[in-house]
Structure formats: C-alpha cells, structure tokens
C-alpha cells in the first residue's frame, strides 16, 4: 500500500503540497487523483507546492508536465510553486525544462497568477 498525497480545495482551485520524498507509485497515484478531482470538483486551477521538495528527478518532472497537460485538456490551469534554486539548476542540467508548466516563486504568487488567468479566460 503506498500512501496518497492529500488534495485540498480552495474555491475552484485544487492545492497539493508535497512534503515527503515520494515513491514512484505515490507520484502515479497523485496524477490520477488530480485528473479525477479536477473534473469531480470542477476545478479551474491546480497549484502544486514543491517548496519542501529537495529532489525532482525526471520521473517527478514528467509527472508535473503530465499533470499540466491533463489539466489543460480539462480546462484547468496548473502552476508549480516554490521550486528551490538547486532543484531548478539540476532539472536544467538533466535536460528538463518543463515546457508547458507555469511556475511561481511561492504559493501566494501562484494563487494570484491563477486568479488572473482564470478571470482572463472567463472574460473571453
């Protein structure tokens, strides 16, 4: 049995805060949970907080990119917040630039970014 990362909801935004060193299976579970809950809770945005994460390897990096793509298909925007400098440098060296993923320095800025982009699409 692998553990599951809790998904919180604030208004129409889903919030995931990763606090522990994730097993690959837990990462896969998170991806499924998010896809399901974006639909079931009609979320418009997803914030993944990785402030506490010390290592992002290609497996976790791919999960972040996949969640971003899935959520876009489901009409929600994903923002990854709080990536540490050492993690960012390592990802670049690894060859992962997380093309389609939006990022913000911290949770507050991430939420602000989502609010701006959601209200923009609503006006459209």
């Amino acid at each position: 049995m692998s553990e599951r990362v809790p998904v919180l909801r604030i208004g129409d935004i889903l919030l995931v805060s990763i606090q522990v060193d994730l097993e690959d299976q837990t990462v896969m579970n998170l991806q499924e949970d998010l896809a399901e809950q974006i639909v079931s809770r009609s979320a418009r945005g997803v914030v993944i907080d990785i402030t506490a994460v010390e290592i992002v390897d290609s497996f976790v990096g791919r999960m972040l990119a996949t969640i971003a793509s899935i959520s876009r298909l489901l009409d929600a925007e994903t923002v990854v917040v709080g990536m540490r400098p050492a993690v960012a440098i390592t990802l670049v060296e690894l060859g992962l630039s997380l093309g389609g993923v939006r990022t913000a320095l911290d949770l507050e800025k991430g939420l602000a970014l989502l609010r701006r982009s959601v209200s923009r699409t609503d006006r459209r």
Partner: peptide, 17 residues
C-alpha cells in the same frame, strides 16, 4: 555544495530507477 548534493542525489535516483 548544496547544488552539487542535489545533482548527485538526483543522478542516484535516476540510476536506481
């Protein structure tokens, strides 16, 4: 250094997988 630690751990993670 912190950056080098992160690089080494990440490489180890890739290879372990």
């Amino acid at each position: 250094s912190l950056v080098d630690q992160t690089k080494f751990i990440t490489a180890a993670s890739e290879l372990a997988r």
